[in-house]
């Protein structure tokens, strides 16, 4: 079946099997390998992308479900806010091995767009669907606070 999606502003059309998952569609059919597949069981969130602005786990979405929708992935260099989140992760050492990072960054972008005045609790709760097995999350949370200052121009409220 034909699946047509807009990814990072560019339209792609591919003929795929109905059982193709969005994560493999993005990686194997389109060739954008920045989106990672971690657990492949809807737990880790490494495959997080934005679909019509909402963060979803692309390993648990059919490419067919995304047909006609707009996606944003870690590769979107035109998105200034996304670049700010990336910089923040570098500045605050929000990664070690980097495998979970594409998902972490997409979820961070989503949560900061949704809430312009985030509390630390909000940041933690919003990260519930993303696992990192290296950092222990403190540096990730610091990265998101840093990103919030860059994007929303405010410090995150502690508690």
């Amino acid at each position: 079946m034909m699946v047509t999606v807009k990814i990072n502003g560019k339209e792609y059309s591919k003929d795929v099997e109905p059982r193709t998952l969005l994560a493999t569609f993005i990686r194997d059919d389109i060739g954008l390998t920045g989106t990672h597949i971690g657990c492949d069981t809807t737990n880790c969130g490494a495959c997080t992308v934005l679909m019509d602005g909402r963060a979803v786990k692309s390993c648990t979405v059919l490419a067919a479900q995304a047909d006609g929708h707009e996606l944003e992935t870690i590769e979107n260099e035109a998105d200034k806010e996304l670049s700010m989140v990336k910089e923040s992760f570098i500045e605050e050492n929000g990664l070690q091995c980097g495998f979970c990072t594409p998902g972490m960054i997409m979820t961070s972008l989503y949560m900061l767009r949704k809430n312009k005045n985030p509390s630390e609790d909000y940041i933690k709760n919003s990260l519930a669907g993303n696992l990192c097995r290296c950092t222990g999350y403190v540096s990730i949370i610091n990265s998101i606070k840093n990103a919030n200052e860059k994007i929303n121009g405010k410090k995150a409220v502690v508690k």
């Binding site: 809807t42 997080t48 679909m51 648990t60």
Partner: peptide, 9 residues
């Protein structure tokens, strides 16, 4: 229910 990403779908 689950996590925010699952709740979005």
């Amino acid at each position: 229910i689950a996590d925010p990403l699952v709740r979005n779908m």
